[in-house]
């Protein structure tokens, strides 16, 4: 029978579980995100570098193709920590722009349209809402970061053999962990800017400015005070330092990986507090 003839009857069937309900927000958000051409285009473009890296891995594992090349150069092009760190820098850059493009569309419209009371009047807590929004971004950014990274890693394992895996498994684990730290920070920054600025474009600009401004301030501190610890407030620098430690690459001059990891933890904590204060079904003016 046609819907319009059926009339409304209260639903009395089975209900879904907590996880299925949790995934409702990400599902709808992903669908809406990939309808944006710019997001889709940037996602596609961000696969170019992993493809090139895959070609590079293929090349390094086929000695016959490298016969004509200089010996020093052949030693230089190795699939090691440095290779993965270069891969990560490029993909991390794409991730920054993707987060700035997609992030503001997550919370800002809900705040602008006062939709939070509708969400929170359902069995959905503020934390699960925030976590669902975080899942959207982390999920979307994973597609262009650690997932292709892991595929490259397994490609290398497949071509180089089990012995390479035994000697370098920490590269794969380090890359995934390093990317997840970066995605967490990117997503929280995008969510925070989206929670405070209702206009998408401005929220995207704020999200990008966060990294540039902190980087500038860090540089200023270092130069004015003639120190090296100023960089610790620059999340991009700090995460780079952590990555280097995870991939076994020589760290840059300045605070070490532990101090950088601590600084990142403080930044994450501050961002969580900032988001928590804004995501309320009703605004209470004391």
């Amino acid at each position: 029978m046609a819907v319009y003839k059926r009339g409304y009857r209260r639903y009395s069937g089975p209900l879904t579980g907590r996880w299925a309900r949790f995934l409702v927000l990400p599902r709808y958000a992903w669908r809406r995100l990939y309808r944006q051409r710019l997001v889709l285009l940037l996602t596609i473009v961000s696969f170019v570098w992993p493809m090139l890296c895959a070609g590079f891995i293929y090349l390094t594992n086929h000695a016959e193709l490298l016969q004509g090349l200089d010996r020093e150069f052949r030693e230089f092009i190795q699939v090691d920590g440095r290779f993965f760190s270069i891969f990560m820098y490029v993909q991390a850059g794409f991730a920054v722009f993707l987060a700035a493009l997609a992030g503001p569309g997550l919370i800002a419209p809900d705040l602008a349209n006062n939709a939070l009371p509708l969400y929170f009047s359902r069995p959905l807590t503020r934390w699960s809402y925030a976590l669902a929004r975080l899942t959207v971004l982390v999920g979307m950014l994973s597609i262009v970061t650690w997932i292709p990274g892991l595929m490259l890693f397994w490609l290398q394992v497949g071509l180089a053999g089990g012995s390479w895996f035994t000697a370098n498994w920490s590269l794969g684990a380090g890359m995934v962990a390093g990317f997840l730290v970066w995605l967490l920070i990117l997503s929280l920054v995008a969510m925070a800017s989206s929670a405070y600025v209702k206009w998408r474009v401005v929220a995207a600009a704020v999200s990008l400015a966060f990294f540039f401004i902190l980087s500038g301030v860090a540089e200023m501190i270092d130069n004015v005070l003639r120190v090296r610890w100023g960089h610790i407030i620059d999340p991009a620098w700090a995460v780079n330092q952590v990555w280097r430690a995870l991939l076994g690459v020589t760290p840059t001059e300045g605070p070490g990986a532990t101090a950088s990891a601590l600084a990142l933890a403080v930044i994450v904590l501050l961002l969580v507090v900032v988001i928590e204060r804004k995501l309320r079904p009703v605004e209470i003016v004391s």
Binding site: Y11, G13, P14, L15, T16, A20, R21, V24, L25, L118, Y119, R122, P123, L124
Partner: peptide
């Protein structure tokens, strides 16, 4: 909204 309330 219905799915958030638990409807399949």
């Amino acid at each position: 909204m219905a799915e958030l309330s638990g409807l399949p």
